[in-house]
C-alpha cells in the first residue's frame, strides 16, 4: 500500500466518522429544538403543510395556556420536594447501611447483604396493587409521602455505598478513630462521610433523576391535581378533547429545561454517574 493511498483512506474514514457523529448529534438534539419551535407557534402554524420549523411569537401565550390548564409551578414544586427528600433520605440511609456492611461485624452480615441484592431482581410491578392498597389504608393517597417513603428503599444505593466505603475508607483509620474514643456513629459521621462525598454525588444524581422522571407509581397514588408531580401533570395537558399542540409542547419544553440545564452544567458528573453506576452493579 502506498503512502498517499493510505492517507486518502484515512481521510475518507475520518469524514465518515464525523458525518456519522454529526447526524447522530443532530437527531439527538433536534426534538429539543422542535419542542421549542412548537412551544412558540400557534396551532394554525403547527397544523399546516409543511409545518413550522422556525420559532414563532407565541411563547408567552402558549405558556399562559399551560398555566390555565394545569398547576404547572405547583407540580414542579411537588416534584422538587419529592425528589429532594427521597434523595436526602436515601443518601443517609444507604451510606449508613453501606458503612455497616463494610466496616462492622455482625452475624448473618453476608446473607443479609445478598438478600438486599436479590430484591433488586424483582420487577416493581409485581407488588404494585397491594402497594396501592397499603397507601390507601395508610391514608396517603394524594399525599407526597406515598412517593417519598417507599422511595427510601434503595438496594442499589446500599450496594454502591458498601463497595465505595470498602475500597476508600481504610480500616486503619476506623481503628485509629476507635482508639481515640470515637463512638461507632461518630466513625460514620466524622470519618466516613467526608471521604465518600463522590459516592454521594453519584447516588444523588441517579436517585434524583429516577424520582423526578418516575411516572407509573405517582400516576397510581396521586389522583388529585394539587398533589401531582410534573410528570403526572404533563399528562393532563394531552387529556383534553381539544388538542392544542403549541400549549402541550410549551408545558413539556419548560418541564424538561431545568434538568437539561443542570445536566449541561454538570455533564461529566452526570454521564459518569448514570453509566458507571449501572455497569458496576
Amino acid at each position: 500500500m502506498s503512502k498517499t493511498n493510505r492517507k486518502v483512506q484515512l481521510t475518507i474514514s475520518k469524514t465518515f466518522v464525523y458525518a456519522l457523529l454529526a447526524i447522530a448529534s443532530f437527531l439527538a438534539i433536534f426534538p429539543f429544538y422542535w419542542m421549542f419551535v412548537m412551544a412558540t407557534n400557534n396551532n394554525s402554524a403547527i397544523n399546516k403543510v409543511p409545518p413550522a420549523i422556525i420559532p414563532g411569537a407565541e411563547l408567552v401565550t402558549n405558556f399562559s395556556n399551560v398555566i390555565n390548564t394545569i398547576d404547572f409551578f405547583g407540580a414542579i414544586w411537588n416534584s422538587v420536594i419529592v425528589a429532594t427528600l427521597a434523595t436526602l433520605g436515601v443518601l443517609f440511609l444507604c451510606s449508613l447501611a453501606g458503612f455497616a456492611f463494610a466496616k462492622l461485624d455482625f452475624k448473618g452480615k453476608n446473607i443479609l447483604f445478598v438478600a438486599i441484592l436479590v430484591t433488586m431482581m424483582i420487577p416493581p410491578q409485581l407488588g404494585l396493587i397491594p402497594q396501592y392498597i397499603i397507601i390507601t389504608k395508610l391514608g396517603w393517597l394524594n399525599d407526597l409521602k406515598a412517593i417519598i417513603v417507599p422511595g427510601l428503599i434503595d438496594a442499589f444505593g446500599i450496594f454502591w455505598m458498601r463497595q465505595y466505603i470498602s475500597s476508600n475508607v481504610p480500616d486503619e483509620l476506623v481503628d485509629a478513630a476507635r482508639i481515640d474514643g470515637c463512638s461507632t456513629f461518630r466513625v460514620y459521621w466524622n470519618i466516613t462521610v467526608p471521604i465518600i462525598i463522590p459516592a454521594f454525588a453519584t447516588l444523588a444524581i441517579i436517585k434524583f433523576m429516577y424520582i423526578w422522571n418516575d411516572f407509573l407509581w405517582p400516576l397510581v397514588v396521586l389522583r388529585d391535581q394539587a398533589s401531582f408531580t410534573i410528570q403526572v401533570a404533563l399528562r393532563g395537558l394531552i387529556d383534553n378533547y381539544v388538542r392544542d399542540n403549541g400549549m402541550i409542547l410549551s408545558g413539556t419544553f419548560w418541564a424538561t429545561v431545568p434538568l437539561i440545564i443542570v445536566f449541561l452544567l454538570l455533564n461529566k458528573l452526570f454521564i459518569s454517574s448514570l453509566t458507571e453506576g449501572a455497569v458496576k452493579s
Binding site: A24, S25, N213, R235, T252, T256, F263, N267, I271
Partner: peptide, 15 residues
C-alpha cells in the same frame, strides 16, 4: 458529541 447523544436520556419518558 458525547453530551448531545446522552441528552435524550436526561429527558423524562413522559416528555
Amino acid at each position: 458529541f458525547r453530551i448531545s447523544v446522552f441528552m435524550p436520556y436526561v429527558t423524562s419518558t413522559v416528555a
